[in-house]
Amino acid sequence: MNETIQLPPLRERFFRRERRSVPAARLFATETLAGWGLAGTERADDVLLCVSELVTNALLHGVPPGRQFLLFLRYDGRVIRVEVHDSGAGVPHVIEDGDEDEDEGGRGLLLVSALSDQWGVRERELGKAVWCEFVRSR
């Protein structure tokens, strides 16, 4: 497979606070992975699932009405990084068995934690960025 990066190593796009942004963000990530020569590779499906989960979390919990969120994708030849920036308050966390919010879903970060090599949250001037990384084997 051709490993030449045909797209810039950093891609970003704003999305509106609406349900159709989830498939739109996933399509953007799919096109980006293909442009980096990573479509069909060992981590592509995991990356796409985590994009969907992080975007869904941003829409449900982090993007106030009238605002947008920003999806960043970065690839340095070894690590794929996904970041979703939103302007909402709060710090997302993995819901464990027995947590109060269990009935409301909230298992997205559990999937992100299981599928990615690492993930986290960092504060921004307004809101936060939730990120995850995938290390590609050589």
Rank of each mutant, 00 (worst) to 15 (best):
H93S: 15
C132N: 01
R138T: 12
D101L: 15
R78I: 00
R17E: 09
V47A: 00
P8H: 08
L110W: 14
E31R: 13
V47H: 09
R122Q: 15
R17Q: 14
V51Q: 07
L10S: 09
P92F: 12
S113E: 11
E12M: 10
T56Y: 09
I95P: 10
G62M: 06
D99C: 04
A39Y: 05
D99R: 00
V130D: 03
T56S: 14
E53Q: 14
I5T: 12
P92E: 09
L115P: 09
Q68N: 07
R16D: 06
L10H: 12
V130I: 00
G108F: 14
I95S: 15
L38M: 06
D86F: 03
R74G: 13
D117W: 09
L38Q: 03
L59E: 02
G62F: 04
D86Y: 06
Q6K: 15
G105K: 09
D99V: 05
R16V: 03
L33P: 03
L27Q: 14
L38G: 06
L71K: 10
G77E: 09
A24N: 06
F72R: 08
G40M: 08
V63R: 03
E18K: 03
A89E: 13
R124Q: 13
R67T: 07
Y75F: 15
R78P: 01
P9F: 10
G37Q: 03
S21L: 01
T56C: 01
S21V: 08
S113D: 13
M1V: 10
L33R: 07
A44K: 10
V121D: 09
C50Y: 11
D99T: 01
V51A: 10
R20S: 11
R16Y: 02
F69A: 06
V130A: 05
W36I: 09
F72C: 03
F15R: 03
P8Q: 10
G88P: 05
R67D: 14
L115I: 02
L49W: 02
V135T: 13
L73S: 08
P64I: 05
A129H: 07
L71M: 00
G127Q: 01
V51S: 04
T41H: 13
S113N: 09
N57K: 00
G62A: 04
T30E: 15
H85S: 01
H93T: 13
N57F: 00
F72Q: 02
A25D: 00
Q6L: 15
L110T: 15
L109R: 06
V51E: 07
V94K: 01
S113W: 07
R124G: 05
D117G: 15
G40D: 12
D76R: 09
A89N: 03
G90M: 07
H61D: 06
R26F: 11
R107F: 13
